[in-house]
Amino acid sequence: MQKPTIFISHSSLDKELIRQIKDLVNGRTSGTVDLFQSSDGESIPFGNNWIHQVEENLNKSKIMFVFVSPRSAMSSWIYFEAGFAYSKGVKVIPIGIDGVDIGSLKPPLNLLQGFNISGAEGLNNIIAVLNREFDCSYPESFSEDDFERLLALSFGRREVSEEVLNIIDHVKMVFPNKMKPGGKDISIVDDPFGKVEKLLVENNIEFRMADKNTIHTHGAIIRHKEGDEFGAGVSLVLDPFCLKINEKLINSLPSVLYQAQAVDKHWFNVFFETDVSLLTKDFKVSSKLHICGFSMSDLNGRMHKYKSVDFALDPAPERGRNFVYDRENLRVIYYSGQFDAKLLFSLVEELVRAGIVAPARNS
Rank of each mutant, 00 (worst) to 15 (best):
I188E: 01
D185V: 06
D228E: 14
N251V: 05
G194E: 12
E197N: 12
V263S: 03
I221K: 14
K184H: 10
V256Q: 02
K244I: 02
N213Y: 13
D191S: 10
I221L: 10
K184V: 09
E202G: 04
V237D: 05
G183D: 03
H266D: 14
I222G: 06
V201I: 14
V189S: 06
I221S: 09
N251E: 02
P192Q: 01
P176E: 01
I245K: 09
L200P: 06
R208S: 10
H216K: 11
L236D: 01
K195P: 09
H218Q: 14
S255G: 10
K212V: 00
E229T: 13
I188S: 03
K265M: 09
V189H: 08
A260R: 13
V263P: 07
G231M: 07
S252T: 09
N203W: 14
H266T: 15
L199R: 08
P176N: 00
L253A: 12
D239E: 08
L249R: 03
F241T: 00
E226C: 00
G233H: 01
A232L: 02
Q259P: 10
K195D: 13
L236G: 06
G227L: 04
V263N: 09
G182T: 03
D228V: 05
V189K: 08
A232W: 01
F207A: 02
D264S: 09
K195N: 14
T214N: 11
W267C: 11
L249I: 07
K195C: 12
G183Y: 06
M173Y: 06
I215N: 11
Q261G: 04
V201L: 09
L257G: 10
F207E: 14
I250T: 02
I215C: 06
I205S: 11
N203C: 08
K184R: 13
I250A: 05
S255A: 13
P181H: 12
I221G: 02
L257Q: 12
K184Y: 08
D228K: 10
P176Q: 00
M209G: 00
G227C: 03
L243I: 05
K172A: 07
P181S: 08
G231V: 07
F193E: 07
E247D: 11
Y258Q: 06
F241G: 01
D264C: 02
D228L: 10
K198S: 13
G194L: 03
K225H: 04
H218K: 15
N204I: 11
A262E: 15
G182V: 00
G219I: 01
F230A: 15
E206H: 13
F193M: 15
N251D: 05
D264F: 11
C242V: 00
H216R: 12
V196R: 12
K178M: 08
K244C: 09
A220R: 05
K178H: 11
K225A: 10
K198T: 10
H224R: 07
N204M: 11
H218S: 14
P192T: 00
L253S: 13
P192H: 02
W267P: 03
T214A: 02
L253D: 05
